[in-house]
Amino acid sequence: MSVCLSARGLHLAFGGVRAADGIDLDVMTGEFLAIIGPNGAGKTTFINMTTGYLKPLAGSITFSGQSIIGLTPRRIVELGIARSFQLPQVFLEHSVLENVALAIAARTGFWKPSRPLLSPDVAAEAHDIIAKFGLADIADRGADTLNEGARKLTDIAMALALRPRLLLMDEPTSGVAAADKMEVVATLARVLREAGVTAVFVEHDMEVVDRFADRVAVWSQGRISALGTPGAVLSDPRVQRDVIGTRLVEAPHASA
């Protein structure tokens, strides 16, 4: 298995907070890698550095062997890295269908003023993607009228419509109704596996991590404190205490 994304010695600090304090990580082609860890551990910072939004103070990131440090987000998208957002970033004056169609157009030909956005082939592909995410019923709804879960799925659908080789997802299931969550992730996982997309996702739901991740990386104060298969990492006492432990204690309260 080849290395898809490789990070070496990433350092970044915001004032006194070390958001990345020596991150070394290899993401293998085709794998699903989950990132877990407490708030403020630097998980989103890693995604922001990988997509060109933030530039590390030191270290290197290569994608398929090519350095992407210093490249703009736009250039990195062209190389084949897409992302979805913790807070969904959708175009609020557009419908779900148009949002996805804009992403498809961005990939297939954006600069043709004579071709309508919803040309037959783009519209067909958009409907196809929307159906995969179970959003067909609300395809024509304005994005500003959606609930958080639907907005989140639209956001991910837009990233996937770019047909990336690597997809970075920041908390893809937060905001999605608990009852639908597993079904949504299963669908998402199937779509990604079919397309052969490598996926890195930040996740707080350990059940999702356990079921869908090939490997888990545990973030802690800007470092990776554990890395391995879900079975090994999630049963590690240290990880249970620092990352999952509090959740297990909280769980009875939440269900009570």
């Binding site: 997509t51 703009t72 987000p73 736009r74 998208v77 062209e78 897409a82 992302r83 970033q89 959708v90 175009f91 609020l92 004056e93 557009h94 148009e98 169609a101 804009l102 992403a103 157009a105 961005a106 990939r107 030909g109 954006f110 600069w111 043709k112 003023p113 004579s114 071709r115 309508p116 956005l117 837009m158 770019l162």
Partner: peptide
């Protein structure tokens, strides 16, 4: 009218609502 129906035209209101997302779709 034709221009406003095209991706470039729709891109204008995308600038109004979520300009950053355009950049993360590879569009300037």
């Amino acid at each position: 009218r034709i221009y406003l129906e095209s991706p470039m035209g729709h891109g204008l209101s995308a600038i109004k609502t979520r300009e950053a997302r355009l950049e993360f779709m590879g569009i300037s």
